[in-house]
């Protein structure tokens, strides 16, 4: 019977936006209707009569639905934030790529070790910008403003952890690449220094395992 009432409510709110607020209102109304229905049955009404009385007591929900549709004002602010963030990411990425492209120029111009040092400085700056952007970027998607609070917290906690993991991973690779070039240039042992990449991959695996375990 609960299903019949639920179906009815679902149909009634078919045009409502499917955000958490709407789900809550629906659940609340359904709970009340179920209480009412059960009371009517207890009074000796037949199932059909009880269903009809319960359904009749809902009234006109068009205003309620309109209110629910009017709700997403908080989202527009979030969308704005997202837009800003996108622009910032684009700018920072462009600058970083600029540094990458420019990095061999000192080597070509100076033809000595100082040029190589500049090459690394450029690469370090560019990588730093990218990592900084990755860490400070919040991965927040517009979340309907109310959901069961615990779920929200759980989700936040989790995404916070994921972000940290991603940041650490990208830092490992950036630092690893710098180490690879530094070691290779200083020792000239290019034939063996590629092992560093294997080590980086191994470290990344360990970091991932640690995060998975703590989840």
């Amino acid at each position: 019977m609960n299903n019949r009432l639920r179906e009815y409510i679902d149909n009634l709110f078919a045009t409502a936006p499917s955000n958490m607020k709407a789900v809550e209102v629906k659940e609340e109304i359904l709970q009340n209707l179920t209480d009412k229905y059960n009371d009517l049955i207890a009074e000796g009404k037949s199932e059909d009569v009880a269903f009809n009385i319960a359904v009749a007591s809902i009234g006109d929900v068009s205003d309620l639905i309109r209110e629910l549709q009017g709700l997403p004002q908080q989202y527009s602010k979030m969308a704005e934030d997202n837009e800003k963030q996108k622009q910032r990411t684009a700018l920072l990425t462009a600058i970083a790529i600029g540094f990458y492209i420019m990095s061999p120029v000192p080597v070509i111009m100076m033809q000595n070790e100082i040029g190589v040092v500049f090459l690394f400085v450029f690469i370090a700056i560019a990588t730093g910008i990218l990592v900084f952007n990755g860490i400070t970027k919040s991965k927040s998607q517009p979340v309907p403003d109310t959901m069961v609070e615990e779920f929200k917290e759980w989700r936040e906690r989790n995404s916070g952890k994921n972000q940290l993991q991603k940041a650490i991973t990208s830092a490992i690779w950036a630092v690893g690449v710098v180490i690879y070039f530094l070691v290779s240039f200083s020792t000239g042992a290019w034939y063996i220094t590629w092992v560093i990449f294997l080590i980086i991959a191994a470290v990344e695996g360990i970091v991932k395992a640690v995060f998975d375990m703590s989840k």
Partner: peptide, 12 residues
Amino acid sequence: ELKEATLYSAFK
């Protein structure tokens, strides 16, 4: 008695 819709609009 209040209609459900009236009740919830008022709650909101």
